[in-house]
């Protein structure tokens, strides 16, 4: 014959403590901040260094030297003026012979030195991207009546980006900073 078992009630009082412990563990181990940054697509590696000659008027050369100073087409420039200058260069509202003859042909050539600080480089890169983003915004307002954001469909984005493509060419950096330091 079976023994009559006494029905115990499960003690749920310590459940909260166990859950608390787990909770605290995950609180400590968690990192919510998401990764964000400036997206860049590098050109594929080409061991032969094939260069495509471009018309002088379509290339805006931006040099950042070892002292974090900016030289745009041979003229010194403050970093805050860069974004406006790029917009002027790409859109070329006055049809100047010195500026890009079409937005699709405009290329920004960025060259830095091996001793340029990363912070300055990122700032310059950010300024270039800001200039293009503003131009895309304006174009998007014109075509679709709203700014260039993720609300646009990918086709609409493609249309805008094909009209004003972001072309940044990065030259091999110079090494003047080191030479200057050695002397």
């Amino acid at each position: 014959m079976h023994k009559r078992r006494v029905q115990h009630e499960v003690q749920a009082g310590s459940m909260a403590d166990i859950a608390f412990l787990l909770l605290i563990f995950f609180l400590v181990a968690t990192t919510i901040q998401s990764d964000q940054g400036i997206m860049v697509k590098l050109p594929p590696w080409d061991p032969y260094h094939i260069t495509v000659p471009l018309a002088h008027q379509n290339v805006l050369t931006v040099w950042v030297n070892a002292r974090d100073e900016l030289l745009v087409r041979g003229n010194r420039m403050h970093i805050d003026e860069l974004s406006d200058h790029i917009k002027l260069f790409v859109l070329n509202p006055n049809q100047s012979k010195e500026m890009a003859d079409k937005p699709t042909k405009a290329v920004v050539s960025l060259k830095s030195d091996r001793t340029t600080s990363y912070a300055t480089y990122i700032e310059v890169y950010d300024q270039i991207k800001t200039a293009y983003h503003e131009m895309w915004d304006a174009e998007s307002q014109k075509l679709y009546d709203r700014p260039y954001t993720d609300e646009l469909t990918s086709i609409q984005k493609k249309v805008i980006r094909s009209k004003i493509p972001l072309l940044i060419s990065e030259a091999e950096p110079s090494d003047f900073g080191k030479i200057a330091a050695d002397e």
Binding site: D35, Q36, G37, I38, M39, V40, K41, L42, P43, P44, W45, S112, D113, R114, T115, T116, S117, Y118, Y121, I122, Y125, E172, P173, D175, G177
Partner: peptide, 22 residues
């Protein structure tokens, strides 16, 4: 400074890893 970053970028290009995020 950009020197070491340039070396990393060159190595990434050689390895075919072209999408990067600063």
């Amino acid at each position: 400074t950009m020197g070491i970053i340039q070396d990393v970028k060159t190595q990434l290009r050689k390895s075919g890893q072209l999408a990067i995020n600063y």
